[in-house]
Every structure is written in C-alpha cells, then in structure tokens.
Computed example of a mutant assay.
Amino acid sequence: MRVDLFDFELPPERIALRPASPRDAARMLVLAGGETHDLHVFDLPGQLRAGDCLVFNDTRVIPAQLEGRRGEAKVGVTLHKRLGPRDWQVFVRNAKRVRPGDVIDFAADVQAQAGARDEDGGMALSFLGDEPVELLLERAGQMPLPPYIASKRATDARDRDDYQTMFAREAGAVAAPTAALHFTPGLLDALDAAGIGHETLTLHVGAGTFLPVKADDTDDHRMHAEWGRIDAATAARLNAVRAAGGRLIAVGTTSLRLLESATGEDGIIRPFADETRIFITPGYRFRAVDGLMTNFHLPRSTLFMLVSALMGAERMRAAYAHAIAQGYRFYSYGDASLLLPA
C-alpha cells in the first residue's frame, strides 16, 4: 500500500506545545459508526456503555534525553530500547563525531561508552560506574519530548508531570502513551459510576514511534520493536468482559498494539511478555479491541495507518480535515479522538 495515501497537510499552529488544563478539558472528536461529534474528554462516560472496559498502558516515562560531550563535540542522546542492566540502544545527534569505544561525558558526572552502530541508525551505549542507571538518568536526563515539541521550545520542570500519565507505574518508556494523559482521578470516578471498568497492561514505548516511514510502500517498512506484558489475571478479566458482551476500548495505540499482539485468531487474549513489531494497516482484521481513544497523529505515520485500518482511510482523512478546520490541537499534548467502528 502506498505511503502517500496517508499524507495530509497540517498547519504548524495546530501542534500543541502544552497540554489542556485540566487534562480532561481537552476536546474529543467522536467517530461512532457513521456519526461525528465534537465533544470534550470529560464527556467520555456518556459515549460508552455500562460493561465496557478501558485498557490503559501503565508504562512510566524515564528521563531519557541526555546532552553530553565527546571531547569538544556536543552530542545529544535519546535512549531507545534497553539491552541490559547498563546497556541501551540509543539515537545519537551529531553521531558522526562518536565512534565505538568513545566515552561520552554527560552532566552530573555521568559517563557512557559508545558501542556498535545498528541498522536502525543508532548505536549501543553502556553506562559506566556502579550506580543504577535509573539514578544516573534522574541526575543527568530530561523528559524526552517528541521532536515536534522539542524543536519549538525547551523542556522544563512542568514536563516532568505533564508528560506522565496518572497510571504511570512501570518505568521504561521513552515516550508517553499520550491518550491517557487526558485522564484525571475525577474522570475515572465518573467512568466507574457509569459502570465502565478499566484495566492496565505494560508496553514500554520506544523512540521509534516517532520515526517517519521512509519507504514508498508499507510492505517495505520495518517496524520498530517494543517490549510489552499482559499477565494471566489481566488477560482473563479482559476475556470475561467480552464474553459478557462488553467492549474493550484501548486507550492509546500502544495498548491496542499490545492487545492485538496477545490475541489469537480465536479472539482470545493470552498472557504475553515479549517484544512486538506488529504493524497495522488497512485490511487488518482486529481481534481484541472494539474501539480506540487516541490523539491525532502525524501524516505518513504508522499510527495514522493504524487508525485508518480501524475506521477506514477515507473516514479518517475526512475526520482529520474536520479536526484541522475546527481548530483541534494535534499530537502528544493535543486533543483526543474516540473511534468506535460500526
């Protein structure tokens, strides 16, 4: 399938640089069957049914953005995927100035040694010393805001809270599961009162989620890998929801991708603890989810392809054109959409 079928023009001013406040005051475009509604996230309880279940990603974003030096050269590093207790796969800015074996000096006396380059355009990095890497990152790292925000303003103290969901528990992500940024304890209470349940799973989002699709055809795109887990008890509860007639609504594409990775052709969700490279494009038959709450995605991205697979490419192109015309805010700190296929 041609990648240019998923292209669209987005005015730069539609890119949100800060989240809505309060979080659930963000706008929400609802596509339910053939209908389209302009609402807000706090209207969510009225758009779902008693017995439905929202599925959240409880991954926690780590301060994975580092600025350092190799000699006189400035080097920027974004952690991408953990390879071991002290080893990470990373993307490097000014990578031509770094060779395998070089030591990079970061702030707060944090050092790491460069390893081999990889086929994704990054390299391996091993943190030196005996302190846990988590402590080193807390000292020297910053929240890894997406490039479309970081290129427009500096990361600051507010982002430590703004770029973390209320469900964040399992440290390991280098990008937030942004659909869940809209949720507040009050909204969760309202959903509970309406008989709408919720469950959590874990998918550690990698920086590869922001990589553009460079191929001309989707068949030639190599999807990045991310590690996820659904335990046996959670899988059993999710299966029970569907068996009772409830719908599973994934909150975010990360939750959806993990659910679909863990579900067999028979529609049964099974325990899962592994990497997934699932790449969902139009023509995919969904096995696990009945709907999706998600933010608005980049043109030509794997995530825009995913929502097009769920709702139809023409429907999503029209929905995005509507959102742009109506002033919706896009991307990680932007507004939400609720997608409920017929």
Results as ranks from 00 to 15, higher is better:
V3S: 02
D7W: 07
E13Q: 08
E13L: 07
I15R: 04
L17T: 04
P22L: 05
G33F: 06
G34W: 02
T36C: 03
Q47P: 07
Q47H: 10
L48W: 03
L48G: 11
A50M: 04
G51Y: 00
L54Y: 03
L54N: 03
V55H: 03
V55R: 00
R60A: 14
V61C: 00
V61M: 00
Q65C: 15
A73Y: 05
G76D: 12
H80F: 05
H80R: 09
R82H: 09
L83E: 08
G84F: 04
G84T: 04
D87I: 14
F91R: 09
V92C: 14
V92I: 15
R93V: 11
D102F: 02
A107E: 06
D109G: 09
Q113S: 00
D118T: 14
L125Y: 13
F127L: 00
G129A: 08
P132V: 07
L135Q: 14
L135F: 09
L136W: 09
E138M: 11
R139Q: 12
M143K: 11
L145S: 06
P147D: 03
Y148P: 06
K152D: 06
A154N: 11
D156T: 10
Y163S: 13
Q164T: 04
M166V: 15
M166W: 09
M166T: 12
R169C: 13
R169P: 13
A173Q: 06
T178E: 12
A179P: 15
A179E: 10
A180W: 10
T184Q: 01
P185S: 04
P185Q: 09
L188I: 15
A190G: 11
A190L: 10
D192S: 11
D192T: 15
G195H: 01
I196Y: 00
E199F: 08
T202G: 14
L203S: 12
A207V: 13
V213L: 04
V213P: 04
K214R: 12
A215I: 08
D216L: 14
D217F: 08
T218S: 11
D219S: 15
D219E: 14
M223N: 14
E226W: 07
W227S: 15
A233D: 15
R237M: 09
N239K: 00
N239V: 02
R242S: 07
L248S: 01
L248F: 06
L258V: 02
G267S: 08
I269H: 02
F272Q: 07
A273M: 14
A273K: 12
D274L: 08
F279W: 08
F279N: 06
F279K: 04
R287E: 01
V289Y: 05
G291K: 05
M293D: 06
F296P: 03
L298S: 02
R300C: 12
T302H: 09
F304G: 10
L306I: 07
S308M: 07
G312D: 01
I324D: 03
Q326K: 12
Q326G: 15
Q326V: 14
G327E: 05
R329P: 09
F330W: 06
Y333R: 03
L340P: 00
P341T: 00
P341L: 01
A342D: 14
